[in-house]
Design a protein around this nucleic acid. Structure first.
Lengths: 201, 201, 201, 201
DNA sequence: TATGAATGAGTGTTCATTCAT
DNA sequence: AATGAATGAACACTCATTCAT
């Protein structure tokens, strides 16, 4: 089981350390404002070594996306039990999504930042968002069929839940317990919320 | 008697054109990735002329903020009539906020982008968000006292409305009619939304 | 006697002021490190106006030399009464040369500085020095013929006197009463020195 | 066993060559009028390499001072044998000082030039001059106590000797045998001067 | 694996100079 | 006489990248 020599292991470890160091710097200063020299210095190695592990600066960026992709984590997070109540599922998703954003803050900020100019990153972010909305929307659709929820624009609800959590982290607003958000989404804030809503058929 | 010679006027016009050109480029490529040379070339003037109007590259950025500040527009947008119904006011705010983001997309993207590394911009964005939440929250509070809305976390509702609109624009999702979002927020999506909601007192 | 219109007069005055301002700045910072913009700003006028009075930056430098030439002053200073005693003449020359250096310090420093790289200035300085040595040497030669001084290398004595005063100003050493220097020099070249000096015939 | 790889050695050699090249150019044209590009071209290397060895242009200047300091050489030159006669010591000092100025002409001219605007360099030059005067003055003082010389302003004599040599080099005057200067100075300060000098007590 | 010397195009910025007003 | 908008080459300095060791 020890399959790897310590040389190989060490090399892999170093590569991962370089990726992490680069992520931290890119996230704080931006990709353009971070130099290869800075990354090497932060890691305590010579500039040339970076080019031993990565063919270029943009390859370091790509390695970041590969190593720290949002998608698997997000997918796992959205694999909800369709038999659980909406309240529980929505609260769970909100809290886990929030926790993920907090945990991967550097990556998240880097993505938001670079997606404005890098189309590849923009696509990646777009996919993530759409997939999240689709998965959560599909679950909500099922709860509608089961009669727990009214017929409604489920994609919009998913967008509202995920978007609110995301905006909160992006703007560094205080993180409140997400149960309250879920409650508002489920039951509304109108005093007479039971009657037929106008503008919806 | 109009006080300005055509020479002075022309200079002011050129200054404003430079600011706009810089905004467009900064927004598309980012501040760091945009060179002074590019801005000058896009405007069809020599590099040195930029330094005749602005003492440095960062001063161009500052001129952008001064010329295109979000705040006044946002404040005007939040000066709502407190006697109007919540449905109408929320829909109005959502639509006008959405229109503003569409109209000032370049500036908005630049702010989001640079706020990640420029603390000054981050502060500015933070102020805008908090002010928006506060103003909209105050209105909602009043509707609660008037009995139109249930007692609830009004700041959270404001955050949800504005955050959802913002995320939609940020992620370039299709812009739906915002009335549906307002309806969901007001009345919820639960079939039995009339009874007392658990977890809220 | 009013021969000049006030416009012409004013223009001449402004020209002279510009030359003086330039001299002050060149002397303090050096010719290369001083910009046209700085000179204009120090005078409170627009850059273009400098080019109304002078065709180029180097022309400003030339105007300085023309306006503030050392030579006439130095020549006047060396027009000594050959019948006066050496002690009196040498003391007079030393004190007046020292006073001149103090009075025209800015010009003097500029000359020393620029003579290192500008051959024209170097020539000018060279001429001044040689002329000074020649004139003072001629006077000393006469005092030798009159029997007041021993036969000696009068050019060397002149060089010593002028060089010592010059070095003192250049190095910003304290200015002592120059009589003492003259006394020291004098009694080494006086006929009535104690005995025949070795190494001189 | 010699500790240094040829790579390291070569790097050190290159650094020193760059310093020397910079000294030659600075001395001829002045610090401000010499560009980094010129230095690199004169050495036949790329511009960037200069910044591999020095963090800035001014650091190149500092490296020049460190590598070619006058002080040690001047101090060695002033470590005279107090038992030797004044004639011999003064002649020795004058000749060795003159030789030093000839040998380090580039550095000497650079110092004089830049001391006019760079206070750090001015201080350095001032220290050198004062130290020289003090050391030579102390020696003369001793010869006074031994009765070889009359009581006199020894600092002034030192200033005269060093200043005359210095001025000669600065003004590119012909270098004469310094014995003659010493002879002139000496017989003005010898005890066996013919009579009490007026103006000194 | 790891170094750092070396490159040259690029950056933001300053400059002397011109010229329409 | 006086302004300041406009130019474009030059400046000090940084960068991603290469490669001999």
């Amino acid at each position: 089981m020890e399959g790897k020599s310590s040389r190989q292991e060490q090399a892999l470890v170093r590569r991962e350390q370089l990726v992490d160091t680069a992520l931290a710097l890119f996230s704080k200063q931006g990709y353009d404002a971070t130099s290869i020299k800075q990354i090497a210095a932060a890691e305590g190695v010579a500039v040339g070594l970076l080019y031993h592990y990565f063919p270029s600066k943009s390859a370091v960026m790509r390695a970041i996306w590969e190593r720290h992709s949002f998608l698997p984590e997000l997918r796992a997070l959205l694999l909800v039990e369709h038999n659980e109540t909406a309240e529980r599922v929505l609260r769970d998703v909100a809290e886990r999504f929030s926790a993920m954003l907090a945990h991967k803050e550097a990556l998240f900020r880097l993505m938001v930042r670079e997606s404005q100019s890098n189309p590849e990153v923009a696509d990646c972010l777009h996919t993530i968002v759409e997939e999240g909305i689709k998965a959560l929307g599909a679950y909500l659709e099922r709860r509608v069929h089961l009669g727990e929820l009214r017929p409604h624009d489920t994609a919009l609800t998913a967008r509202t839940l995920l978007g609110t959590v995301l905006t909160t982290h992006l703007a560094r607003l205080p993180i409140r317990p997400w149960a309250e958000l879920v409650a508002q989404l489920l039951h509304g804030i109108s005093r007479h919320s039971d009657h037929v809503r106008p503008g919806q058929d």
